[in-house]
Design a protein around this nucleic acid. Structure first.
Lengths: 196, 196
DNA sequence: TCCTTTCTGTAGTCAGAATTATATAAATAG
DNA sequence: CTATTTATATAATTCTGACTACAGAAAGGA
């Protein structure tokens, strides 16, 4: 059962990378099909044959983003001896992600779908769920910190997890507003004061 | 030189309030002319005769937002004996604003124009400038705190101002994501730890 | 009263953007 | 070689959403 029919004239994975870059740079709604097809170097019918629709392409792009470019902060969270080191590493990795965006700045999961168009609701929810997952992983790490004695028994892991989720969102927003690496790194120390 | 011609059939200021509510709830791009005219109860030609264009209407809406609904945090900043009290009052006022939005949630200045459509660039910059102004007022208050001995001489007012600007942005984002008042208020205490 | 001015309602125009119909090209299976 | 299958390119189609032409209505001024 070899491949039948005319073979695809481009590499699908490679194309998906480029599509993700466009979504990352512009967000879902501002990324026009034009931009997507131009970035890959294909025409609309090829795009639809390969990815189904703009929305499905976005979902796939989010998947590879989570697996690759966007995975730094969550990996950093598992490094370090203490909670404080882990959180700090996560925040610094968030800054890397925010400044590493292709054109614009900020994290795809945070800024990819902001508008409240009725039709983009499902994609907004998709990203919102991923943000919630992120917060839960942070909470798990904080709870471990409490268990290991890094944090006092009275520390509220859920509250602090929400707090550091907020800091990461703010990093992306300020990166979008043009903040420099130095500006963003200056947010880290103040935010770590909450761990005392 | 009394008024000439047929008088307008609606109250312009009242209409502008309703227009602002729609922009606040949906953001600039998601707010369709349909929504705006329906909220006021007028037809498109009346809208254009009174406000010029969607963009100009948005600019006017931002103006009255800054003057009225959105003014709470900056007024709160001037209250309180200590810097800490002032900042805390400002953050709590931000929560009021974020939760007081008509339908959706969050601050108009923070979430009103998120997309990077080329044509919305000027409006994005308009809001970005207002956010920068906010940060500068916070910095001025922090500098006063240093002068008055509320904060150590070594405190970096610019960094802390950026930090509290970030917290307010995060409050709006989390409100948009459905956070409750309790959730948002839980962000305040951790963020105040940076003032020690 | 008649003219000028300005607003209002109906019903469009116009541009932009996602998606697709049709014909053609490039591969495998028989 | 022919048929079948799948991809591609050109050129629509379709829909949405900002904006407006035109005719009629409501005021003031001569």
């Amino acid at each position: 059962m070899a491949t039948r029919g005319r073979p695809r004239g481009f590499d699908r994975d490679n194309a998906l990378e480029k599509i993700m870059d466009v979504f990352w740079a512009k967000g879902y709604e501002a990324a026009q099909l034009n931009d997507l097809t131009a970035a890959v170097g294909i025409t609309p019918p090829s795009f639809y044959a390969a990815f189904g629709s703009k929305e499905q392409a976005f979902r796939e792009a989010v998947n590879i983003y989570v697996a690759n470019d966007g995975s730094g902060p969550m990996r950093a969270l598992e490094t370090g001896e203490t909670v404080r080191q882990a959180i700090q590493a996560m925040l610094l990795a968030s800054i890397d992600v925010a400044l590493g965006a292709p054109q614009s700045n900020g994290c795809l999961l945070i800024l990819g779908v902001m508008n409240c168009q009725p039709e983009t609701g499902p994609l907004y929810d998709l990203l919102k769920d991923l943000r919630r997952e992120t917060m839960e992983r942070v909470r798990a790490r904080l709870e471990r910190g409490v268990a290991e004695g890094d944090l006092p028994k009275t520390a509220d892991a859920a509250t602090l997890a929400r707090y550091y989720g907020a800091i990461m969102q703010a990093i992306s927003m300020q990166a979008r507003d043009g903040a420099s690496r130095r500006d963003l790194e200056a947010l880290v120390q103040p935010s770590l004061a909450a761990l005392r």
